[in-house]
Design a protein around this nucleic acid. Structure first.
Lengths: 209, 209, 209, 209
DNA sequence: AATGAATGAGGATTCATTCAT
DNA sequence: AATGAATGAATCCTCATTCAT
């Protein structure tokens, strides 16, 4: 009555099923909370099969983060650069990002959890997430520099750091508060504020903060 | 006359030692990562003694969060309300908060970790943290309402949500990036931005975002 | 119907029971063959209780070896030094040792197994056994030096090494061949041979081997 | 034309590689310590390929012992029977054996480990080793009988047992102590002692030990 | 107020082996 | 001749918790 033995073994399919199961569980319960037994139960493969596909738990979680990030990247399409004002373009980009985050991408939820931990032997997933994060900050800085060429490097760095960090915070709020929070509206507000600040910094060359 | 000193059972002292140990470990490794055995090893008391002071692990973690929050509250003194402009007052408050966060209060780090998880049986520590968080948002809304009386309730709620959420994000960034990040400067920038937005919202009574 | 819970917990007794069980199994199957589950089953305590008494498997095996050695040492009483010839004294000592080895002391069987292995991370039990072994060689050298004062150090070292090594071999043979092998007789022969060699070396000061 | 070289399946080569890997690992860690996965990793072939060449783990280990023994036998050439005294001949043979043992043949190290164990289901490798051992004892008895025809059967058996057992012990000592131990010198001493004993037994026909 | 000892459930991981291809 | 994938049982060990003292 129980399936005899999976015929026509298909490694790729299995790997996907394991990742799916692990992603769901890890997004709910974090690194330590993700038991191999639970993943095994949810994907239908025995625990030992998971170890055929992934070296260990760390490897599995890292793969979850990487795959989730790639999926998210290809899914999120930034709006075309139609001929509207820089401010409008930034706001539309922020809204697009916000919309892509409403689906709660695993890499971001899991990554932030890992980022907050400081265990002696850092999980590889954390390292990977922090790299992703740093690439993102770089991208934001690029965009800022392109839109407001008169900004100096220090100001750009400051703005990029602020923009990305605050975005994380908004995501966390959406995470905890649920849909009472209008993520798109908050991201648009966020974009306006950062743009204001950028203009401020650009025009007052020798001013305060 | 026999034992060197501090041999007669001292419950308060023991409780403090346990909380100290648990706080350190929980800040490093999160809820699941905090093993009773590890706490026992770090504080020097046997595991069974921990259960004399705390009902269970959940109770212990909750106590850690509560104590850390109280410590943080009493340590952080908001600057006096001298007669300077509202904007200056807000910026000075933000800087004071930033300074208090540089020490990485456990309740915030741990609380954010817990907040990001979504396990079926919610740890009490998470509930407590979310309450703290909501009180904080209320406080921010109060201040905003006092400083800019002409703001309507919806705008105040939006601003308070944004202000607190972005602050969380800045804290996380400081957490992951370390001291390369100037938390005080970022909080001051943050205060300026929020204040700008508030003024904007106050003057354009009937506009969109 | 199953015992409610061991009342009047008695750590020392439990420790002894665990060691007894581990000694039996380890003597049969060696280091890797000694499963904690098997020890648990034989001693009646759950596996987790074994870890209360011993840090890990290595610690347990080491304790087995140490205890077995101590037991053996106190059990084996060397014969009094009545006024007979040196040769007779040596032979009587060898016979006493042989008799004590017929009971197959665990430390020796287990120790030799461990000694033959060369795993990268050496089990502590192996180190302990080799120390015991080296102390034994020292004792033999002492006795030889006392009985035949004219022997030089190099000869004494050679003889002691030979005496102990061959004794190991005889023990192994007894182990594998069973009681068809008369261990006492072989040890007496061994003693005679070594004594002959000692006399030889003592009288031919400047000879070959 | 495509693959660089040695791509077309070569069963004999693979079998050799597996045996090499298994021999290394088994000599390090014994029977239980030799995992199929470890062998697979060291020889570069997947675990399932090992099962193509060998029925099961027991079969593999047995093959390791057998091959090692054959290699050792053909490598060790006993010295010619030139016209010197029986004693000199025996000593030269012992030295030759010692020299062949310095390379630590796997069959002997592994065999002795297996011999010391007493597990319910005896590994075939153990049986094979004990047979080898018994053949060796027979050979030694033959030689002794040829050189000293006046010895009775019981004495010959005793001497052969002693000779082989002590040789094992010397090998073990070399194994544990390393090259501080001069195996050739010890084997020469050993040969002298046994020869002395044989003469003794031959001349005192009706005496005790 | 504290603790030594115990306990069952579960942790991650490795085991020898099988089987379809 | 070989192998990628799978599998259930076993591995050592840690978990949070309890209880008698």
């Amino acid at each position: 009555m129980s399936e005899p033995r999976k015929q026509r073994a298909n490694g790729i399919e299995s790997r996907r099923r394991i990742l799916d199961a692990a992603a769901e569980i890890a997004a709910e319960r974090g690194y330590e909370g993700t038991g191999i037994a639970a993943v095994s139960a949810r994907c239908g493969l025995p625990a030992s099969s998971i170890y055929w596909h992934f070296k260990d738990k760390d490897d599995l979680i890292t793969a979850v983060i990487e795959r989730s990030f790639e999926t998210w990247l290809t899914a999120m399409e930034l709006p075309g650069e139609q001929g509207d004002s820089p401010r409008e373009r930034v706001v539309r980009m922020a809204a697009a990002v916000a919309r892509s985050l409403v689906g709660t991408p695993d890499f971001l939820r899991l990554g932030l959890m890992l980022a907050l931990e400081r265990r002696p032997e850092e999980p590889r997933g954390r390292t990977v997430f922090l790299q992703i994060r740093s690439v993102a900050r770089g991208k934001v800085a690029e965009i800022a520099a392109a839109l407001l060429p008169e900004l100096d490097d220090a100001s750009i760095a400051l703005l990029a750091t602020y923009a990305v960090a605050a975005a994380d915070g908004l995501f966390v709020a959406h995470q905890t508060e649920g849909d009472e929070i209008d993520l798109v509206r908050l991201f648009e507000l966020h974009a306006h504020l950062v743009f204001d600040a950028a203009e401020h910094l650009a025009h007052s060359r020798n001013g305060s903060p």
